[in-house]
């Protein structure tokens, strides 16, 4: 991947120029799906955009010292991490990439949730601290399953390169891995039934309680970009290989949209689980499947 393609992927497609409007669209789909499930009309189509611009134009309270600077930095780091993850997705055929970019993608996907944890603690609000502690517990429990699932997908197809992975036909093992990723996505996106860190009826906005104005706008954007990256990752793994760029892009968008719709409907239909139930769910129920997937992937690898 030369510098030009890398920049084009990061800034144009599937990077910022595509990902930011897509993030707003997915945020709208999320809210609209909840509204439709409750027989409401719901927010207008442009609502996430209105919210974003309004928040950008609001004043932030003055913050002094290193804590204040950190509080401004976390949302920016989260946005850049999520945007970088979207930029790495192998949407277009033969768009480049490098050996091991899957690992970089996983690291970038994890960055927003790290930032949320740090942000809650640096805001020094009691609600922020509780939210961060919950996010940390949640992240420890789903990430093991998530990483094992992705590892099993990669090991079953003998590559850590996203593009090769997307081009290969899906094996039954890969479907098992994808199912495990899907189980982890609601926790990664903090939506119901795993919306523990930002449980607004319990701890207000959790780690975001002290954030206002442009910083909050960046958090909203980071959440939207996480939607694009999470749904996009599954979409690239599921999609059959297409030779034509336009067709591949359309398929990617359609698959991501379906995924977002499914996950938002699930979020609207479920209530929040308690933290101990959530942790138990991931450690007891799903870990066993992830272990099964990884061990069979490794077994097949040694046999072949």
């Amino acid at each position: 991947m030369n510098l030009l393609t890398a920049l084009a992927r990061l800034l144009v497609f599937p990077g910022l120029l595509f990902a930011v409007p897509a993030a707003w669209f997915f945020l709208w789909v999320e809210r609209k799906a909840v509204a439709l499930m409750q027989e409401r009309i719901g927010p207008p189509f442009m609502q996430p955009f209105f919210d974003f611009v309004k928040l950008l134009a609001k004043r932030t309270p003055p913050r002094q010292g290193i804590g204040g600077m950190l509080m401004r930095a976390w949302p920016l780091i989260a946005v850049s991490g999520a945007a970088g993850a979207v930029g790495l997705l192998p949407v277009l055929p033969s768009s480049g990439g490098f050996e091991g970019d899957l690992i970089l993608l996983l690291a970038l996907l994890e960055l927003p949730s790290m930032c949320i944890i740090a942000a809650g603690f640096s805001s020094r609000s009691i609600f922020g601290e509780i939210g961060s502690a919950r996010e940390a517990a949640l992240s420890v429990s789903y990430n093991i399953v998530f990483l094992l699932a992705i590892l099993s997908v990669a090991a079953s197809q003998h590559t850590f390169r996203l593009e090769t992975l997307a081009a290969l036909p899906a094996s039954p093992l890969r479907w098992l891995g994808i199912a495990a990723i899907l189980v982890c996505l609601p926790a990664k996106l903090h939506i119901n039934p795993f919306s523990l860190p930002n449980a607004e009826q319990e701890i207000y906005a959790g780690p975001m309680t002290e954030y206002a104005g442009p910083e909050l706008a960046m958090w909203e954007l980071a959440h939207g970009l996480e939607w694009v990256a999470g749904a996009g990752l599954v979409a690239t793994l599921v999609a059959p290989h297409m030779a034509i760029g336009g067709l591949a892009a359309m398929l990617f968008i359609a698959l991501s949209f379906v995924l977002v719709l499914l996950l938002s409907t699930l979020a609207a239909a479920t209530a929040r689980l308690a933290i101990d139930t959530t942790v138990r769910f991931y450690w007891r129920c799903t870990l066993i499947f992830a272990l099964l997937a990884i061990s069979s992937a490794l077994f097949m690898r040694f046999r072949s």
């Binding site: 809210r31 509204a35 009309i41 207008p44 919210d51 609001k58 906005a205 309680t209 002290e210 206002a212």
Partner: peptide, 17 residues
């Protein structure tokens, strides 16, 4: 359905208008 007007009930006064 106040959300049609873009209304959102926020838990923190920092987020509110």
């Amino acid at each position: 359905d106040a959300e049609q007007l873009g209304v959102r009930l926020e838990g923190s006064p920092r987020h509110a208008d």
